[in-house]
Structure formats: structure tokens, C-alpha cells
């Protein structure tokens, strides 16, 4: 039975969060399909990387280790995956919807003529009947994603071409170690058989990566500001509130674009997806793109001067008024009434 395959992103010897999440999801899909879960790690100095991969239930790990393969560039990684997929013929292939996966995935899908669905929010196994052709497909991957700026939820299938490819954003799936002692097999690839010199056409001249200091995904409370905050200075109020409540500060794209907050704090379709216990939206109008990144928050408070702001439609509490007036009151009450 053809496998479920996960592309493992590696940054500084670490397996990316999103890849860990996808291995967990991949294990579940493989169980349902009754097949193996396989993974591929491409990079440099990867000795021992399997110990960070097998615990997620990976049966076979392919390793391509070569100095030229780290940091990621598109062409050599594409060549390796395309050839590997041609050899192993996985039925499902998953990648992170990251700046790596969204660069690599389409190129691989084009080379293999296999369909790819970007930014899936749910992956489910199911059947499909093509009534026109009188054909029934069993155990397809339903690739479920919002489209059209979040106005529709589409279920995409890939009936005839393999692998069925999907990318998923970080934080969408849950990661879980299956068994710390899970034993898989490592297959080392002879890199020279997979890449050509022409694959190294793009050269990295400079690279500044930062470990994300902000961990909004794990924060139980997110205090987010929008363009309506008016200035970077006014954002300080949000830091004050987040500090008191033990939360993180997020921002809408408009606020980030206006320079009120750093890019890493951006919440929404093009930023991070958060699901905190409490989301406090301050001066955020609530465009669908922003809502896509926070609407699953357990509780939402919207503070806005505009009583008609779209964010209010998904809020549990709507406070109409000035953030600069309201936040200090919240801080004051909280300090007075908690230990």
C-alpha cells in the first residue's frame, strides 16, 4: 500500500513545528489507510535527526545530507523530492504551508502533474463517486480549506493523480508524540543521484533568520491591536494589558503595515493563527483575513469606536468606546481583584 509522506523542514538542525504537526496528522491518516508513514529530511549535518522524527510514528525516513542542501533552496530540494516520489509513489504528500513548503510544493506538483491544495485546515479520508463516469473512488484525501477570502469552505479532491498533495499552515494541526521509542528505518539517499549542478543556480548571499521570540500560538490570552490604535506608542497599552493578564500582543495586518507592531506579531490569513482562551481585539475592524487567524478563539472581546465594525459579529463582548479609556480600567479592576 502506498505511503503517506511528510516533507520535514529543517532549520538549524531542528525539525520545524509544522513538520512535527504534519507527522502527527500523517500518522493518523496512515493508520486509517493502513499504510506506512514515511518522511524525508533534506539538509546538512543530519546525523541523529531520526530521533526527532521516529517518535511521531514515522516508519521510514529518507535522509539527503549534503552541504549544498542547507539552507533550503528550491531546485535541489525539488529534484530530490520529485525523484523520490517517482520511486516511492506515495498516495499522500504533506508539506508545511510555510515559506519553504509554499515555494517547494507547487514546483513539485507541477513536475509530477499531481494536484496540490494549499493551506488546508482539515484533512480527512473519504470516498467519492463520480456520477458522470460511474466511478467510485475509495479512500481519497479530502483537502478542506477556506477559499475566497474565507467566504467559502471548499473540499478539494485529487481523484486520479498521485500523490495527493496538501500544505498546512503551522499551528493548524496538533502535534503529539506517538511513542518515544517508535522504531523506523533510515534510508540514506545518494544525493549525487538526485541533483544536478544546474540545481544550484540560486545562491544565498545573506541570511538573517530569527527564532520567533513571540509565541502567540501558545498564549492563553492574546491582546491584539489594529490600525485603529493610531500609533506605535498607543500599542504600549496593549503590552501593559497583556503583561498584567499573562498574554501576548498580536496585531492585524494593517497595524503591522503601518509600523505599529513587528511582522512576527501579525495574526490572520497571512500571519499566525491563534486559538487563545481569550482574544481582545482593540481597534481592529475585523476583515475576513484577520478573522481567519483568530475566529476560533474561545472568547472574543472587541473594543472599537465603530459600533458597526465587522469584528463585532464574531465577538462575545462588544465594547464601544476608546481603547485608551477602557484598557486602563480593565487593568485597574484586574489588579484590584486578583492576587
Amino acid at each position: 500500500m502506498n505511503s503517506v509522506f511528510v516533507y520535514c523542514e529543517i532549520e538549524e538542525g531542528q525539525v520545524a513545528e509544522v513538520s512535527q504537526e504534519l507527522m502527527t496528522k500523517g500518522r493518523g491518516l496512515a493508520n486509517e489507510l493502513g499504510c506506512k508513514l514515511e518522511a524525508v529530511a533534506i539538509g546538512h549535518n543530519l546525523d541523529g535527526i531520526e530521533s526527532h522524527i521516529f517518535p511521531y510514528g514515522v516508519d521510514v525516513l529518507y535522509v539527503a545530507d549534503d552541504k549544498r542542501l542547507y539552507p533550503f533552496t528550491t531546485l535541489p530540494h525539488t529534484s530530490i523530492i520529485v525523484k523520490l516520489f517517482e520511486e516511492q509513489k506515495p498516495q499522500v504528500a504533506l508539506m508545511g504551508a510555510s515559506s519553504i513548503g509554499r515555494d517547494l510544493g507547487p514546483r513539485v506538483s507541477s513536475a509530477l502533474h499531481s494536484g496540490l491544495t494549499a493551506d488546508c485546515t482539515s484533512l480527512v479520508i473519504g470516498d467519492h463517486e463520480d456520477k458522470k463516469q460511474g466511478k467510485v473512488y475509495e479512500n481519497l484525501l479530502y483537502q478542506i480549506r477556506p477559499a475566497f477570502g474565507g467566504n467559502i469552505i471548499a473540499t478539494i479532491i485529487n481523484p486520479d493523480c498521485r500523490p495527493q498533495m496538501a500544505t498546512v499552515r503551522e499551528g493548524v494541526m496538533k502535534k503529539e508524540i506517538l511513542d518515544p521509542k517508535y522504531k523506523g528505518k533510515v534510508v540514506k539517499l545518494d544525493v549525487s543521484k538526485y541533483v544536478t549542478d544546474a540545481d544550484f543556480a540560486v545562491e544565498i548571499i545573506e541570511r538573517h533568520m530569527e527564532k520567533s521570540k513571540v509565541n502567540m500560538k501558545a498564549a492563553p490570552i492574546v491582546v491584539a491591536g489594529g490600525y485603529g490604535m493610531g500609533s506605535k506608542e498607543n500599542f504600549q497599552l496593549l503590552y501593559d494589558l497583556a503583561d498584567v493578564l499573562g498574554g501576548e500582543v498580536g496585531a492585524s495586518r494593517a497595524a503591522v503595515d503601518a509600523g505599529y507592531a513587528a511582522h512576527e506579531r501579525q495574526i490572520g490569513q497571512t500571519g499566525v493563527t491563534v486559538r487563545p482562551k481569550l482574544y481582545i481585539a482593540c481597534g481592529i475592524s475585523g476583515q475576513i483575513q484577520h478573522r481567519a487567524g483568530m475566529e476560533e478563539s474561545a472568547q472574543i472581546i472587541a473594543i472599537n469606536t465603530d459600533p458597526e465594525a465587522p469584528i463585532n459579529a464574531i465577538a462575545d463582548y462588544v465594547i464601544t468606546g476608546d481603547v485608551a479609556d477602557i484598557i486602563p480600567k480593565m487593568i485597574k479592576y484586574y489588579k484590584r481583584n486578583t492576587k
Binding site: 502533474h113 494536484g115 467519492h128 467566504n151 467559502i152 471548499a154 479532491i157 493523480c161
Partner: peptide, 10 residues
Amino acid sequence: PTKVKTVENV
């Protein structure tokens, strides 16, 4: 290769 199986309006 990809087909839209179903669409749900949000």
C-alpha cells in the same frame, strides 16, 4: 488534477 468536491458558504 484537483476537483472541487463540495463547497460550503460561510
